[in-house]
């Protein structure tokens, strides 16, 4: 195993729920992220999948330091960055950049593309001397596949896919080591989506980036990721290499999620087993005891309500022959189940 550039330990973000106008008192908390352990390994792409409200975006915001965690640590090259401030924080931020979901609201409509992409240099002038900035911005535009002549245009003159390229160029401006991309293609059409994914994958090779790719779309995550983490209600429930998660899932939630994805192949609809989960995701303000998936799980037993399952290789697989099922899965009753048909 190569070294981890980022180590997330027991990370939590709780948003307080208050009551009263004058004398606010806390009556509970929305536990958006509630104990996440993850390693980001240098040069890899780590995919994070989960449904809305599972905490994947909050996790991303904490990693780029847009939110302060309630508890836990984020170590960047061994140093805990959650408590940093001032100059030390600024130095770390340069190396961890973000690409946002919505290319329509994440670009300032009153700034030209050149100013948007060049703005990071105002904050970190050591990266590019003043006279050199325009040239750098043109280079960046070229790198993300836009015409460098467009440097004086405004965001509204671009299509959604082109705007997302601008967002990516801005993320690359400071030559960061880590890019956190939060649903970078969900607002785009299918044909444009493929262009942007290819661009991200290409840039990663070119600049040796470490990428954290967050999405609700399991197919895209498989396509781009080396490893995948599945989140449910603020926790990672299963973690492994892409074939471990997709071809040998052991957590019932992962299995249900995979089986629910529509496969673009009408032949598959007859001989495909679908697990249709009952009910909705519980509210993160009122998380079930024990295993948080138990309210929707078909395997749930008494033990699931009492004991929180930890994210580790389940005991049944620990003793068995090494194989793809041997990866961390937070379930007391983990078992392998193939839900995605193998393509010929």
């Amino acid at each position: 195993m190569t070294e981890a550039i980022l180590e997330v330990r027991d990370l939590a973000k709780h948003y307080p729920l208050t009551q009263g106008i004058l004398f606010k008192k806390q009556v509970g908390a929305v536990r958006a992220v509630d104990g996440v352990d993850l390693d980001l390994i240098t040069g890899e792409t780590l995919g994070i999948v989960g449904e809305s409200g599972c905490g994947k975006s909050t996790l991303a915001k904490m990693i780029v330091h847009l939110e302060r965690p309630t508890a836990g640590t984020i170590r960047y090259k061994g140093e805990d960055i959650t408590k940093l401030s001032g100059r030390a924080l600024k130095a770390v931020r340069r190396n961890i950049q973000m690409v946002f979901q919505d290319p329509y609201t994440s670009l300032n409509p009153r700034m030209t593309v050149g100013d948007i992409i060049g703005e990071p240099y105002d904050i970190h002038p050591e990266v590019a001397p003043k006279g050199d900035r325009r040239r750098r911005v043109r280079e960046l535009l070229d790198v993300v596949g836009l015409n460098p002549e467009y440097i004086n245009r405004y965001p509204h003159q671009f299509s959604g896919g082109q705007r997302q390229r601008i967002g990516i160029a801005r993320g690359l401006a400071l030559q960061p080591e880590i890019i956190v991309a939060d649903e970078p293609v969900s607002a785009l059409d299918v044909s444009v989506q493929a262009q942007v994914i290819n661009l991200l994958a290409g840039l990663q090779d070119e600049f040796d980036l470490t990428l954290m790719f967050i999405s609700h779309d399991l197919s895209i995550v498989r396509h781009i990721s080396d490893r995948v983490g599945v989140m449910y209600l603020g926790r990672v429930v299963e973690l492994g290499r892409d074939e471990e998660i997709y071809d040998h899932p052991t957590h019932p939630y992962t299995q249900a999620l995979l089986s629910a994805v529509p496969v673009p192949d009408p032949e598959a609809r007859e001989h495909r087993e679908r697990i249709i989960l009952g009910g909705d995701v519980p509210s993160p303000a009122n998380i079930p005891s024990g295993c948080r998936f138990r309210t929707r799980c078909w395997k749930a037993q008494e033990r699931c309500a009492l004991e929180v399952p930890l994210l580790a290789v389940p005991a049944v697989f620990r003793l068995a022959e090494p194989g793809p099922a041997q990866h961390p899965s937070a379930c007391h009753f983990a078992e392998e189940k193939k839900v995605v048909p193998t393509a010929e």
């Binding site: 299918v190 044909s191 262009q195 498989r222 781009i224 074939e243 995979l258 496969v263």
Partner: peptide, 24 residues
């Protein structure tokens, strides 16, 4: 054909996606 080839598949891991060039 371009659309069908440009969607990532759950059951396959390809290196590069086919992309329809240009914009609508």
């Amino acid at each position: 054909r371009g659309l069908l080839r440009s969607i990532p598949r759950l059951d396959q891991k390809g290196r590069e996606l086919y992309a329809i060039k240009g914009l609508p």
